[in-house]
Write a protein that binds this DNA or RNA. Structure first.
Length: 283
DNA sequence: GAGATTAAACGTCAAGAAGC
DNA sequence: GCTTCTTGACGTTTAATCTC
């Protein structure tokens, strides 16, 4: 993907026009152009940095223009160092305090397994088990269980043994340490418990070996699928986070626009006052 | 009320940036 | 050089609003 020249780099005259417009006009702009317009205001003090966006023939210059701009976080943090009024985008900061908590402590899973019902079980370092339900929203469907009594990790023993359904209507996921994660089958909200299995593996058990021990084509395919699902899950969360940052970025730019407009108004008034004083003196 | 329109949010892909 | 992160682009879904 290459970003269009007009998206990332605008000329100074455009910044002028934005500065003259009111915030309603800015809000009427759509999507990327809105951000671009706001970004022009944000960089209005450095308006000389991009004055040629049209008819760029020099390949090197064109390449520079087409290159991706820094991330929202970086832009805003740079901005915040210049302008005290601009708030920084913090790492992993939720949009607001009351915002959905999203994924609680979304640790990078070391092993990801899929059950026959489509759920994903991610075992992260430290014994955290995350169970996500793809049928619902990725955030809401993700649950975390922490094994408090799993003891010392067993080297190379990351094996999940999955029983499709037990006689008492629950699902069991067998995890290292001779324990099982039991999912209750009733109710809208599934509940999970860590239990010590009372019986041997029930019939219909599917065993998923840990990565690194896969050899057969089928296992390789499963591993590829697993990796893909993990990548998609990560990217899903990354996209959400990116959108959150983008919204925050736009908000900050909008407040900066408002601030600069007030400042501009004051300066114009001041100029008019000085003009009046000068003209009255000359008369 | 039914269909059209619009905006927002989402998931995915792809490509560049950044980190190692 | 490889992996991971970041983000624009695109298509889809959903809810709200408008028009008839």
């Amino acid at each position: 993907m290459t970003m269009e020249a007009g998206d990332s780099q605008q000329d100074g005259s455009a910044a002028d026009s934005v500065a003259e417009s009111d915030s309603a006009n800015i809000q009427s702009l759509s999507g990327q152009s809105q951000i671009s317009a706001l970004a022009q205001v944000a960089s209005a003090t450095n308006a000389d940095e991009s004055t040629e966006s049209e008819a760029v023939i020099d390949p090197q210059k064109r390449g520079e223009i087409l290159s991706r701009r820094p991330s929202y976080r970086k832009i805003l943090n740079d901005l915040s160092s210049d302008a005290p009024g601009v708030t920084k985008i913090e790492e992993g900061k939720p949009e607001e305090d009351g915002a959905p908590t999203g994924i609680p402590t979304m640790a990078v899973p070391t092993s990801l397994y899929q059950t026959s019902t489509g759920q994903y079980i991610a075992i992260a370092q430290g014994g955290t088990i995350q169970i996500s339900n793809p049928s619902s929203d990725g955030v809401q469907g993700l649950q975390t269980l922490t094994m408090t009594n799993s003891g010392a990790p067993q080297p190379g023993a990351t094996i999940v043994q999955y029983a499709a359904q037990t006689s008492d209507g629950t699902q069991q996921f067998f995890v290292p340490g001779s324990q099982v994660v039991v999912q209750a089958a009733t109710g809208d909200m599934p509940t999970y418990q860590i239990r010590t299995p009372t019986t041997a593996l029930p019939q219909g058990v599917v065993m998923a070996a840990s990565p690194g021990t896969l050899h057969s084509p089928q296992q390789l395919a499963e591993e590829a699928t697993r990796k893909r699902e993990l990548r998609l899950m990560k990217n899903r969360e990354a996209a959400k986070e990116c959108r959150r940052r983008k919204k925050e970025y736009v908000k900050c730019l909008e407040s900066r626009v408002a601030m600069l407009e007030v400042q501009n108004k004051k300066l114009i008034e001041e100029l008019e006052t000085l003009k009046d004083i000068c003209s009255s003196k000359t008369d």
